[in-house]
Design a binder for these strands. Structure first.
Length: 957
RNA sequence: GCCCAGAUGGUGGAAUUGGUAGACACGAGGGACUUAAAAUCCCUUGGCCAGUGAUGGCCGUACGGGUUCGAUUCCCGUUCCGGGCACCA
């Protein structure tokens, strides 16, 4: 009698044995090629896992197991990103200490993960909140502090080299404070007084990627701009390398594009603009503000100029005014006494506006400064305005305005009645600007005398295409030293401190006000226990509450090392590091997680190199995936990381969406009407728990029990059933559409869960979870089990038939190809077909079953182990070699092809498998079926596509 | 506004990258077994039309064109949905 497929027994047994036998322990082994598979490690949130979370883990686990069966030494680790805002907010919400909730959540995650049967090597687990882990986060920070970015070498260098250079150049100040201030401008981790995103509700500053549309990503609280002294990472120094690196890695085009946008390289020209007191009206410039008698404050100091940045150097002949950002330091210097009051008022107005208002409201505002700038190309003097549409943080904070060819300049010019000079042939600028970079340049210059001569050369762009004109102007500007070619990046430095408790402490103290690194030997600086860990709206760091820590413990540690004077007590940095600090180099730590001498030993780093396959959500495109690449490039410059890019291939798994169900309550009643009849009533749709709905039919009793409110509910049924409506939404508690993987594992087993998650659709695609479909995968495993049992129960073994072999080898070919491209859903379909075929063929051969078990192992490891054992296989099926398909079993003796006339298939016929196209056409045209088509017709053309079709094109004789 | 990706049955999705569109699965309908239920198995299932029937015909991959003997696939235009960037000069 065949054994039932008892998944509970099988899965429990193998979970036990895998642990006992340390099946998934990984050790470095020079004799084998490595393969490093990694998932983005989770935040252990309080809600636990829902079915969406394991999707990526399952996908990468399948790949890891497959690679292992191919003979690779596979590293497939897992850990927890435990520091940061989410963990802390959950703790605050539940009123518990973050450490307690975090550890409890981790245990819960682990329990859930263990049920699904991953091949993680848990000996290598890392937690970002554990001191032996963040030791190396602090260490890396100190290394960044002690490094600067050498523009020539395009890499990080020790800060001592820079000091040496300053000394040689005689720029090294004697004063310690001045030395510190000077170096701060170069250090890769630096203390900067910058505008930051301050979120009062969260009581902390946020990085740019943590703010979207003026509100915090987490919580959606308003964010304001505030000048604060903060630790920053000079990510922008690596802009070009971050951009170039994208071409060397195997990531989806869309995520690379997102990063390119975020880095925002724009190649342009910087031009020096001299400031002048009185205007000389340029052509059409009769609307210029009246000249004001003033002495330009910069004149005579050699600084009577400012620099603008443009990507449209070709439009220099169309400049009719200049604009400075209100925050620009130049504003004060340029403003004339007459305009002072107006400018001050405007600045006051600008200051009153939040970042959010500025982003949403694009009303034209601005004020004349009183001064004029001289266009070096035309010699024209154009008024300098101050306007909020120009941003201080980008380029030089000053622009040349070309209203004819920039929509923002256009709006401004129209508002203030400034001239507009069209520069492109055929462009109509009477209603709107012509922003496109296509066309032939004109009016450049309008007349020869309107182009200033430099060393006997004057610029003329007329007749050139815009692209040519840009290049020509660049050349001209460079040749005559009017400015220089400049590449600008939008990528900003990352703000690296948070006024929060739950994060890595900075290994920094302030020695007479000078930020100083705590000696490396004293690391890690442990996060102190505090009673009050809540943030404050004013930004007092919670670590300030840790008196003992700040004033005693760390100092004693330093004193013990006899590194400072025992009597002196120094303040410790009270800020903590942001969430991305701990997640930026965790993949390196997995290589050598227990090393207490280094982040990773050179040997381990040399063996594992970098991550071959990284799986995670695309929502980290401008956060973690940028920071991590930056951090790795820095460690690469240090020689710690062996590869310039940390993640060679990236697969972004899609989100699993929820499938919500609705019931329809007739308004003002407690009566619910079924989906098909709801349009006859005035109804309110109400979310109903998907767990009490099966195939969109509501379990009425369960519904009544679900909430006291519904205990007395009445129903209007159709065909005796209550049919629910449905919609695809985000999986969330409030929509009652959360499906817990534990329940699926309980009812169907982990193998079915794994299979079904992959069967839903391509890994990269977002798709809704629908528990209804899972039966298909469950049935497949039961069929597979039944087939295996019938083979195992055979008393006498027979050799496989040709059909058996063909089915098997077709499957090997398909599955191998599909796994390589993560097309797991089609692999599983192929399994279903193969198992059906073999069942119909009444396959009795163990030599067919054995490779089948190996093939299924990555997808359904538990059932595979069980059958592997039953087959008497050696060791774990994980180490069984992946089978190779043989073409000889797939060869057809004859092929059935469609024969077409004029492109339409008319009949099918059999051809010898080795027939040439010519032979096939001869056979097709002489076939009896062909005669009725050929009658009265003439063959124009014949096409034979091997293995596809024979096509005969006819025309009447 | 700019950039990127996409649109295939009632549903999730296949289609060897230009060669018989709709694999596989769900759902639905019909049937077998069963006292009944569960489980299992078999048949039908893109639309329309003709035929008692085997079957045959027409339409069909968001929409409109194009290239081709042949287009879900390539090209041009349009609509819609998703994602990224955004007073970035």
């Amino acid at each position: 009698m065949a054994k039932e497929y008892n998944f509970r027994e099988i899965e429990q047994k193998w979970h036990r044995l895998w642990t006992e036998r340390q099946t998934y322990k990984v050790v470095e082994d020079e004799s084998r090629k490595k393969f490093y598979v990694l998932n983005m490690f989770p935040y252990p949130s309080g809600a636990g896992l829902h079915v969406g979370h394991p999707l990526g883990y399952i996908a990468s686990d399948i790949y890891a197991r497959y690679k292992r069966q191919q003979g690779f030494n596979v590293l497939n680790p897992m850990g927890y990103d435990a520091y940061g805002l989410p963990a802390e907010q959950y703790a605050i919400k539940t009123g518990q200490h973050p450490e307690k909730t975090t550890f409890a959540n981790i245990d819960r995650y682990r329990e859930q993960l263990d049920k699904i049967g991953f091949s993680f090597d848990w000996d290598r687990e890392v937690r970002t909140c554990s001191p032996d882990y963040y030791h190396w986060t602090q260490w890396a920070f100190q290394k960044m502090f002690d490094s600067y970015f050498d523009e020539e070498l395009q890499k990080a260098q020790p800060i001592e080299k820079l000091i040496e250079k300053f000394k040689q150049e005689g720029r090294w100040p004697a004063d310690e404070q001045a030395q510190s201030d000077l170096l701060m401008n170069y250090r890769l981790a630096f203390l900067g007084e910058t505008m930051v995103n301050w979120c009062p509700k969260l009581g902390t500053v946020l990085a740019n990627d943590e703010v979207v549309e003026g509100v915090s990503v987490r919580g959606g609280f308003p964010v304001e701009q505030k000048k604060m002294r903060q630790w920053c990472l000079r990510v922008s120094a690596y802009s070009q390398r971050l951009l170039d690196g994208l071409d060397t890695i195997d990531w989806s085009e869309s995520i690379k594009e997102t990063q390119r946008n975020w880095i925002g390289r724009s190649e342009g020209t910087e031009v020096e603009i001299k400031i002048s007191a009185s205007p000389v009206p340029s052509k059409g410039g009769e609307n210029l503000p009246a000249a004001s008698p003033f002495t330009p404050p910069l004149e005579g100091t050699g600084e009577a100029s400012f620099t603008i940045f443009t990507t449209r150097a070709d439009t220099m002949f169309g400049v009719t005014f200049f604009v400075l950002a209100p925050e620009s330091e130049l504003v004060d210097k340029v403003t004339t006494p007459e305009q002072r009051a107006a400018v001050d008022e405007y600045l006051k107005y600008v200051k009153s506006r939040t970042e959010r208002e500025r982003m949403i409201d694009h009303t034209v505002t601005g004020v004349f400064s009183g001064a004029y700038g001289i266009n070096p190309i035309t010699g024209d003097k154009c008024p300098i305005y101050i306007a909020e549409y120009v941003l201080a943080g980008y380029g030089t904070g000053a622009i040349m305005a070309v209203p004819a060819h920039d929509s923002r300049d256009y709006a401004f010019a129209k508002h203030f009645g400034l001239p507009i000079i069209p520069l492109v042939e055929g462009a109509d600028v009477s209603e709107e600007s012509y922003d496109a970079k296509e066309g032939i340049v004109m009016n450049s210059p309008v007349s020869p005398d309107k182009s200033v001569e430099y060393d006997g050369e004057s610029l003329c762009l007329n007749g050139l295409t815009i692209k040519e004109a840009i290049a020509e102007t660049k050349r001209f500007v460079e040749a005559h030293k009017l400015g220089r070619i400049k590449v600008n990046y939008r990528l900003r430095d990352a703000i690296f401190s948070r006024q929060r408790y739950w994060g890595e402490p900075f290994p920094v103290y302030y020695k007479h006000g000078i930020p100083t690194m705590i000696p490396e030997e004293c690391l890690p600086i442990e996060l102190p226990q505090v009673e009050k860990f809540l943030p404050t709206e004013t930004g007092e760091p919670p670590l300030g509450n840790a008196q003992v820590w700040a004033w005693d413990e760390v100092n004693r540690k330093i004193v013990d090392k006899a590194l400072i004077d025992e009597k002196t007590v120094f303040p410790i940095e009270l800020y903590t590091m942001p969430g991305f600090a701990g997640s930026s180099a965790y993949y390196l730590r997995y290589m050598d997680p227990h090393n207490d001498k280094a982040l990773v030993s050179p040997e381990a780093a040399a063996y594992w190199q970098n991550v071959d396959l990284y799986v995670g959500g695309s929502e980290h495109a401008t956060g973690h995936l940028i920071y991590s690449r930056f951090w790795n490039k820095f460690l690469f410059d240090l020689g710690v990381s062996k590869k310039e890019e940390p993640f060679q291939k990236l697969v972004n798994q899609g989100m699993i969406q929820g499938r919500s169900n609705f019931v329809y309550r007739i308004k003002e009643t407690n009566t619910f009407v079924s989906l098909g009849l709801k349009d006859q009533y005035d109804v309110t749709p109400i979310h109903v728990d998907v767990n009490i709905v099966k195939n969109d039919v509501l379990d009425l009793e369960a519904f009544k029990a679900w909430s006291p409110e519904y205990a007395t509910a009445d129903f209007i049924l159709e065909d005796g059933k209550y049919v629910c409506g449905w919609a695809i939404e985000k999986m969330s508690k409030s929509m009652y559409n959360v499906v817990n993987p534990d329940i699926i594992v309980e009812n169907y087993g982990a193998d079915t869960l794994r299979l079904y998650e992959m069967f839903l659709g391509p890994v990269e695609q977002s798709k809704p979870w629908d528990t209804n479909g899972i039966d298909g995968c469950f049935r497949f495993l039961k069929k597979f089990w039944a087939l295996a049992q019938s083979i195992l129960n055979q008393s006498s073994q027979e050799a496989p038939t040709a059909d058996n072999l063909k089915t098997l080898h077709k499957l090997i070919k398909k599955v191998t190809a599909d796994i390589e491209v993560f097309s797991y859903n089609t692999s599983i379909s192929a399994f279903m077909v193969a198992v059906n075929e073999l069942s119909q063929q009444k396959c009795t051969s163990r030599s067919i079953l054995e490779p089948l078990v190996i093939l299924i192992a990555p997808f359904a490891p538990h059932i595979a182990e069980e059958l592997w054992e039953a087959l008497g296989g050696k060791g774990s099926v994980c180490d069984a070699r992946w089978p190779q398909y043989e073409e000889k079993y797939l060869v057809e003796t004859s092929v059935k092809l469609g024969v077409q006339f004029n492109g339409k298939v008319r009949f099918d016929m059999l051809f010898p498998a080795d027939a040439t196209p010519e032979q096939m056409i001869a056979l097709a045209t002489s076939a009896p079926e062909a005669q009725k088509y050929l009658e009265g017709m003439q063959i124009v053309k014949t096409i034979a596509i091997p293995k596809r079709i024979v096509n005969i094109v006819l025309k009447p004789c």
